[in-house]
Nucleic acid binder design. Structure first.
Lengths: 408, 408
DNA sequence: CTGAAAGCGCTAACAT
DNA sequence: ATGTTAGCGCTTTCAG
């Protein structure tokens, strides 16, 4: 069975090439912005509704009505069928550009996330795109790159293009970008990050409850020195999860507990690694780390492994989001499982409501997450790491950790 | 340091709601397709070029020229500056819909992948989107869902919307969708999947060489019973990688070697798991598995672990693409590292070339991959799995594996 | 250097 | 039930 079907073993015959000088756009106007030039010479001549009308021997408006579901009852049944037939055999399809200009409706929606590559956002975009496609919307996608100015610019660009609505996963708390959406009159749904704007619908996870459950989980395991690595606090998710952490600590009524919070500068693996390295170097004082998200947690795991600190035997770690593969790491990561694709489809659903019913009430959908216990959390060790012979600077204790550690 | 900054511990106050009856689109025309209705009542009244012209006391055409870099030298310098100033203080920005209708250029490109959620494609889309955004293009994104008809429909929709170009990662070999792109006159770049169309530019990985290197790697480790799990052979990548496998087997001049090929039905983890379960049940005869991609390989690892078969002690496994986290699995997956984001940015580069220079030659960029050796491959065991007491049906040998195993 | 006028392709009053 | 007309906002001949 070494051979299979009739296969042609073509070898790839391409030749590698690279641009010598990357093209740069010429510097532009201030507020105006033009459509990039494309020098396509020979496109197919399109069949217009005029052609259809001519062949049917009727006026364009008749053809237009016949082809338009909303007006087709104003036309005799036979005429409708005749025109539809002609349209089909001519291969007519309406030019959305003209339709849009006339009707002020483009049939497009915009999806904005902080980072398209993040495995958290990809399924959300995918699900939202699928949902709006069912209603014949096409999707602009852009990435804010975690930059507020970029988000503003994206919203302006999309607004100029008359998107019917926007689904945004990039809002900060009290984000001016959210105000901009409202000012521009664009139906907007916030997902994951809720700007806390009364007039904006949102779809979010119940992060507060989720993180509180994580705290309870590690408390149950006997941990008493617990650190929480939060994301930059401009994001609502960061607020909510921190609130959950604080609530969890209160639950503990913990006289003998030590809780600390460390603020990360970013959301990715490298940042988690950087922070954990620093903490290790400064003398490790905790037995459990709750991380804002899985990526930071994975970075923490990497740093622990590099330092020869055993997880979960010496230190427990948790993440949030339960990204793909988190269950297959070593150790498998304990995490908060979120609604994944459902967030995207539900966001799309709210958005379509808003679009199709101009005065739909704003709604706030809150999905609950649940703790997925895996191998990265275990019983608290009898002695914390620093009491052993490992940490170089174990003596230095007091202000060992800064709220916002800087790169060296 | 348990408290941090002045935080407001807002608790989330949304209420969960779900649509009772999902809205379905009414059944549509055959070839015509209309723009979805959006009942937005009150958008901001836009500032048009007429307003600018009026305030400047000139004709619209003058204003148009003054604001258009390509025609602004036909206007006196003072006039240009005056109009630009007025445009800015009025907050004018051109309506791309009107511009597009007039010029037949939309400043949009389309990006199509088989699956938006796949961690392989997300970075490619992200990188391409970033690159084309530099040239002021906005991006339509859609997913073909591995369905040829869906791909055709996406291309038609995007064509109707006058995209300036298309980057497609969904082509099969000799894909009619590729012909469609050409017939429609859309500048198109194929990425990852090369339809083998002489007139289409492409950006791909040198999969053949890569997989051959993987074969060499496991041969070097002493493996003599090697299976390759291929993807459905409609995809060019599947052809190329299989060719690499075949080439590797020939290199072996291997009288005592056994090579087999198994065709998967899909690309995801579950499929890898299903196949490996089946192979285990049928009596395992191999010591090394090369998998078409990481997801299948991960599935295989899951099944092996579930069956209590040790990797790499008993069986070695490899993947392709080196997705994020592959190095953190247990065992860490040996894989082929690909160019990742570079594929997307290079694809965008070629596309922009095609768009801006109508008669740019078609180019084929081939990136090379390299083997990343990790823990999932190890020396061949002295005795293969089936010779021990593990396999239930170890006796059945001959046609144990079908080319296309079906679900039970 | 600037104005006049036409028209991209379509839809939606307003007629009949 | 169909035809007439106007115009969405912009660019681009063609005149002057």
């Amino acid at each position: 069975m070494a051979s299979l079907r009739n296969l042609s073993y073509m070898s790839h015959c391409g030749s590698p090439q690279h641009r010598a000088t990357p093209r740069r756009r010429p510097c532009r106007q201030l507020s105006t912005m033009s459509i990039p030039t494309g020098n396509r010479p020979n496109r197919q001549p399109r069949v217009t509704i005029l052609d259809v009308a001519a062949k049917a021997g009727v006026h364009v408006s008749t053809a237009s009505r016949a082809l338009n579901p909303k007006a087709e009852h104003r036309i005799s049944g036979k005429m409708v069928r005749k025109i539809e037939l002609i349209a089909e055999q001519l291969g007519y399809s309406p030019n959305p550009l003209a339709t849009s200009l006339r009707t002020q409706r483009t049939g497009t929606v915009g999806l904005v996330v902080p980072n398209l590559s993040d495995p958290l956002f990809a399924p959300i975009i995918a699900a939202a795109q699928e949902r709006v496609a069912e209603d014949d919307f096409v999707t602009f996608v852009a990435s804010s790159d975690y930059k507020p100015e970029k988000l503003l610019s994206i919203i302006e660009i999309m607004s100029r293009r008359h998107v019917a609505g926007l689904m945004v996963a990039s809002f900060d708390i009290k984000d001016p970008a959210a105000d901009l959406c409202l000012k521009l009159g664009i139906p907007t749904v916030a997902v994951l990050r809720d700007p806390r704007h009364a007039e904006l619908s949102s779809v979010t996870m119940d992060d507060e409850k989720g993180v509180r459950a994580l705290v309870e989980h590690v408390l149950d395991l006997g941990h008493r020195r617990i650190a929480y690595i939060t994301a930059p606090l401009a994001a609502s998710t960061a607020h909510n999860r921190l609130a959950g952490f604080m609530a969890g600590t209160k639950l503990a009524k913990a006289a003998h507990c030590q809780f600390d919070v460390i603020e990360a500068d970013a959301y990715h693996v490298e940042e988690g690694e950087r922070i954990m390295k620093r903490l290790i170097a400064d003398g490790m004082r905790w037995t459990a780390f709750l991380c804002f998200n899985d990526l930071l947690a994975v970075g923490a795991l990497v740093a622990l492994k590099a330092a020869g600190i055993a997880c979960p035997d010496e230190i427990s770690v948790t993440g949030v989001n339960d990204l793909p593969f988190m269950g297959l790491l070593s150790p498998p990561l304990t995490s908060l499982h979120n609604a994944g694709r459902k967030i995207g489809s539900q966001g799309a659903e709210l958005l379509l409501d808003l679009i199709e019913n101009g005065h739909a009430p704003t709604r706030h959908v809150l999905f609950s997450s649940h703790v997925v216990v895996r191998g990265s959390t275990g019983p608290a060790p009898s002695r914390p790491v620093q009491d052993r012979d490992r940490s170089a600077k174990a003596a230095r204790r007091q202000p060992a950790v800064r709220a916002r550690p800087r790169p060296p």
